[in-house]
Amino acid sequence: MRPFSYERAHDLASAIRAASHQADAPLHAPIQFLAGGTTLLDLMKIDVMRPDRVIDINPLEKTFSEITVTPMGLRLGALARMSAVAHHPAVEREYPVVSQALKLGASAQLRNMASLGGNVLQRTRCSYFRDTSWHECNKRDPGSGCAALQGLNRKHAILGTSEHCIATYPGDFAQALIALDAAVEIAGAKGNREVPFRTLHKLPGDTPHIETSLATGEIIVSFHIPAGAYARRSLYLKVRDRESYEFASASAAVALDLADGVVREARIALGGVATIPWRAVEAEDVLKGTMLDEVRARVAAEAAFAGARTFGGNDFKPELGRRTLVRALLEAAALEIR
């Protein structure tokens, strides 16, 4: 860790103002917001992130941690803690995929600290990214190369990759958001804007160090998940090497609107396999209007991974991903909805 100054934000506007004038992409910026700190402090300790100034936004928690459930949908403050949302009775009942994605993430201690805003902005677990003794990492050091391409890449992505970066987006909650067509409300120097959550994360392309569409100084203030007939019949399936406290090798967020076994609408997002939270639109299209059975689920899964590219260590992931999706779809179809 390197020396930095620490200050507490008194209000949203001053926090934004303080951070707005910097040039770098937000995740490399010399001024960083501190929410739960479970990503930021971790990366500062291992010298991957080196901010000069850390602005603690927790004083804003009262205003920005509300959980509101209305017939229109669910609004979640960006400073709400993962555990608070995960165990909220209405979220558990009406949006099981949201609750489950949060409950299956990290550990109980981390969930008590970590905020939703920080969660969607958590950074990849690529080991080469997290260890600065590796020189090649375009995400950490633009233009330096990518050690993972021909290195150890069992954990790496197969969807949305580029020749510059194949790092997996590691989080779980974002899959639930993207599947349910959430919007994210962002406060910036020019006021607030609400954009589809799917536009928040950017494919690595040839700028893997630019991970989101946030402008410098912008703060995520809330997430809005619209109500939908499919939300109740939803689940998050996380397949991983151990039972808990581990990132997904493959995961699927699935929400279904079924009528007599026929899919009226399907919402599918995939985790552990892609560089960004991944919406599997092709698979949704395959399912729409069909009877959901094993064969159909498999066809949808084939469609979801049609564009997959593997890199040696992760050669198994397309098949694991397909099986994960099939299992999630069949389990969601079998749910008893009261």
Binding site: R125, D131, D241, R242, E243, S244, Y245
Partner: peptide, 13 residues
Amino acid sequence: KDLADYMIPVSAD
């Protein structure tokens, strides 16, 4: 080289 990546069972296992 850390306990996040060097896996051991957790209690739930």
